[in-house]
Amino acid sequence: MARLFPQIICGFFGIVLFVLYFLKAPSAKTLYLTITSDYWQIIFAFALLVGVASFIRVNIKKVAKLSEGPYVITGLLGLFAMPVMALLWGIKGDSPFMWVFENVQVPLQATVFALLAFFVASASLRGFKARSVPATILLVSALIALLSRSDIFGWFGNSALEFSEWVRSYPSMSARRGILIGIGLGSVTTSLRVILGIERTWLGKDR
């Protein structure tokens, strides 16, 4: 029963939403938007609260450990400081909450992303070797994309830039479309399996 009822609810919502998508009546459109907008937003918000609560629970257990304690405390301080600041001074443009967002979160996030440039570059140096035809094509197309915005391509005039744009807009896009169509068909099949109750992995294991 603990697995059957959720499956029935899942199938019911799947069929209802599928039918609502095609109905033109205003009430059907309203119901469709209510479920896909309000229902989803609210349940996702609660899922986030569960995630935050779980993060706090897991980290509080680690506080006592000498090796992890200072890091865990820093993370928890960051987590608690934001709601406290929002509660005390609000979240308007010049509030301390926004100050922390602009001067702590944004630079940290941007630098972590920037750091990836080094790892991507070192990985490509090791991995990009023209050992076979596909590997050579991969290397050449990556070089074309990389150099197209640099001064080196400028020496060849506009035609080099146009060629790189052509590669991106036609041969590259055709493969992208193939992948997208594959994803689309795969999603449809998986969705049907979920609605019909064939795919049940989302129910998890009985604890």
Binding site: A2, R3, F5, P6, Q7, I9, C10, G11, F12, F13, G14, I15, V16, L17, F18, L20, Y21, F22, I35, T36, Y39, W40, I43, F44, F46, A47, R177, L180, I181, I183, G184, L185, S187, V188, T190, S191, L192, V194, I195, W202, L203, G204
Partner: peptide
Amino acid sequence: RYSMAVLIGSGAGVAIPAMLGARTLRQM
């Protein structure tokens, strides 16, 4: 599981026409 059932079921119901339209037919 009931909350997940609502999310996954409604997501699957929306995905069938949306994916067929945007990811498959429009690309073709």
